[in-house]
């Protein structure tokens, strides 16, 4: 049996996670630290077995890690961009991707169901291949390919050549018709899970292991994340975190309440998830135990959900208006 080279990291996580679980920034900083340690151990392991990296490369994270919005538990979403293009290089970085995935799994990050991992050739490519792939996704413009694009746009450079991800994003913005990309992206994220019924009551899960709890990921977070990502595309920004994106997007894009308001709302929501989610496993962490909330807190959650939906609808109208202006 192979000696577990990641056991120290697991210990490190166990030691530090409890201090961080109630504070969003601290927690995400810790996740970054853990992922960094895993990547370093994985690289050393691959160097030991296959020699040094044959080309400059960038390991980047996507999904909630990319946006710096991880909860206590978080699954893996990552990819690799390397410079030189040949079969040996490809095989080397796929091996690295597999090693990192394995390490992250051992450190408590479940594998991504959708296969968004550097161990998958789909997400481990040379710069030239990545450029082709992005162009192909835009041209294809299917629901699936736009979904990949949106995932990629949450990509944050994590290890290695820090400019590669941004270079690709810039390439994407330069080579595509912004209006078209926005329209397609909007179409992909239109569906909002309803969180409040017409009587003003929160719509909790009625069946299953999370019965009685609120799906805060889909109901609460998604409208903010998706709306702000759309604005970020509109402004051709490179940031990935929703809070940072909010900071960089001009005021004119937001409803009257202003962007600081939405930053506060979103941050509060992240805090609620940390404080009232059931963090025994990855799945349950997305559900908020409503019965534990005070009356005021329940009211606040409802307000945050309503504001998220309102922000999303505002962005939708804004983009649709731009779209029709563009047609004229």
């Amino acid at each position: 049996m192979e000696d577990n080279i990641y056991s120290k990291i697991v210990e490190f996580k166990q030691e530090h996670i409890n201090e961080a679980v109630h504070e969003h920034f601290k927690l995400n900083h810790l996740h970054d630290e853990i992922i960094k340690q895993v990547v370093e151990v994985a690289i050393n392991q691959v160097i030991d077995q296959h020699g040094p990296p044959p080309s400059p490369f960038s390991f980047f994270v996507m999904g909630s890690a990319g946006r710096l919005e991880q909860s206590v538990w978080s699954d893996q979403d990552h990819g690799i961009i390397y410079h030189d293009q040949n079969d040996e290089v490809k095989s080397y970085f796929l091996t690295l991707g597999r090693e990192i995935s394995k390490g992250l799994f051992q450190a408590g990050y479940p594998y991504c169901d959708g296969g968004v991992m550097a161990s998958n050739p789909f997400w481990c490519k040379s710069i030239a291949e990545w450029q082709q792939q992005l162009t192909k996704w835009v041209l294809e413009s299917s629901w699936e390919s736009i979904r990949y694009l949106l995932i990629f746009l949450d990509g944050r450079s994590f290890y290695g050549e820090s400019t590669y991800v941004d270079q690709l994003k810039k390439h994407l913005y330069q080579t595509t018709n912004k209006e078209q990309l926005l329209t397609k992206s909007l179409r992909n994220t239109l569906h909002l899970k309803k969180g409040i019924n017409v009587l003003g009551k929160l719509l909790v899960e009625t069946h299953g292991p999370h019965a009685g709890a609120l799906n805060i990921k889909e109901i609460g977070l998604y409208p903010y994340v998706n709306a702000v990502r759309l604005l970020s595309i509109k402004e051709k920004r490179l940031e990935t975190s929703t809070l940072l994106r909010l900071e960089k997007i001009p005021d004119s894009c937001f409803p009257f309440a202003g962007k600081q308001f939405y930053q506060q709302q979103f941050l509060k929501l992240l805090q609620y998830r940390l404080l009232f989610g059931d963090h025994t496993n990855y799945d349950s962490g997305h559900y908020l135990a409503i019965h534990m909330l005070t009356k005021e807190q329940t009211k606040e959650i409802k307000e945050i959900i309503k504001n998220g939906a309102a922000l999303f609808h505002h962005v939708r109208r804004l983009l649709e208006k731009d779209d029709t202006d563009g047609d004229e």
């Binding site: 009625t206 069946h207 299953g208 292991p209 999370h210 019965a211």
Partner: peptide
């Protein structure tokens, strides 16, 4: 039904 009393669909 689950152990905690919640129902599955």
């Amino acid at each position: 039904f689950n152990k905690d009393g919640s129902a599955n669909n």
